[in-house]
């Protein structure tokens, strides 16, 4: 075997998709004693084109809505049998913020010893770029088309799923960005050192849906954090979140202009101002004036 990642090449994820980078690093830290439960989504569909799989560890596909419920069951059954393994749930933003939210809420509330990872590309990319609860304000998608009637695109703010998990008093909650590898690895290691329900929110570039250059995938999500739009933080047992990286607070236009889905905003500064106001309000709530 030429490479020893627990995630094999030859899968069908688009060129430049960031999700496999997130997965390979999490599995590298988790190790072979891992069971993955995968909600429906790009990652599930494209990594397991029957009769092949990219996974070198036990893996199960379950429906959009019940990945967290199945992971709960695996954890409970293994506990009963006196066995122990790292149980990881991977879900996209659709499978987590929208369809799987109820099962996830139950898993965290019941206190199952599972790590749930939401790889967030901010829309239903697998089915054709429909908006999800995690699509940001102002983004074009095929169900938030931009035109004369609606010049904004998506008119609703992004659902703060990780903050909802903090409100559940999950054992560990963190936002992670693969472009900040040291912070990313530290948080994943920390997540595996804590017992109980844990949640990681990972931003993930989608060149197809973001209308962006595939080679800029890492650069774009780095800008998401450096502009303050995707803050890096962590929280244990429901305590106030701690910021783990102080951004440079670059102008948000630097991020928006890298992606075709925000192209219409650049000609309409009034809507960019609204994003900036929301951004300032979030950071003010966490003690930072920008």
């Amino acid at each position: 075997m030429k490479n020893d990642w627990l995630f094999a090449p030859g899968h069908g994820m688009c060129a430049g998709c960031a999700a496999p980078i997130i997965v390979k690093h999490i599995l590298a830290i988790s190790g072979e004693n891992t069971i993955v439960v995968n909600a429906t989504g790009c990652l599930e569909v494209a990594t397991t084109e029957y009769p092949r799989t990219a996974w070198r560890i036990p893996w199960v596909h379950v429906a959009f809505e019940n990945a967290a419920a199945v992971a709960s069951g695996i954890e409970a059954a293994m506990k009963k049998q006196g066995e122990k393994a790292n149980i990881i749930c991977f879900g996209g933003d659709g499978g987590t913020a929208d369809i799987g939210m109820q099962a996830l809420s139950g898993m965290v509330e019941r206190g199952h010893n599972v790590l749930y990872v939401m790889y967030d590309n901010e829309a239903y990319m697998n089915t054709g770029i429909q908006r999800s609860g995690a699509t940001p304000y102002g983004a074009w998608t095929t169900t938030s088309e931009v035109g004369m009637v609606n010049p904004i695109g998506n008119i609703r703010p992004k659902k703060p799923v990780a903050e909802i998990m903090v409100a559940h008093r999950a054992a560990y909650v963190a936002t992670v960005n693969i472009a900040f590898l040291r912070d990313f690895k530290r948080k994943v290691e920390k997540a595996f050192s804590i017992d109980g329900p844990r949640f990681l929110h990972a931003i993930s570039t989608c060149p197809t849906g973001w209308r962006s250059d595939p080679s800029k995938g890492i650069e774009i999500i780095k800008l998401a954090t450096e502009t303050g739009l995707f803050p890096l933080w962590e929280s244990e047992h429901g305590e106030d979140i701690k910021i783990t990286y102080k951004p440079k607070f670059l102008p948000i236009e630097e991020y928006l202009k890298t992606q075709g889905r925000f192209r219409h905003l650049l000609k309409q500064p009034e809507y960019i101002e609204r994003i900036k106001e929301d951004l300032k309000a979030w950071w003010r709530r966490h003690g930072v004036e920008i």
């Binding site: 094999a8 090449p9 030859g10 899968h11 069908g12 990594t47 084109e49 009769p51 092949r52 799989t53 990219a54 996974w55 070198r56 560890i57």
Partner: peptide
């Protein structure tokens, strides 16, 4: 496990 390596992408 990992037989996706048969797909030469």
């Amino acid at each position: 496990a990992g037989n996706s390596i048969e797909n030469k992408t």
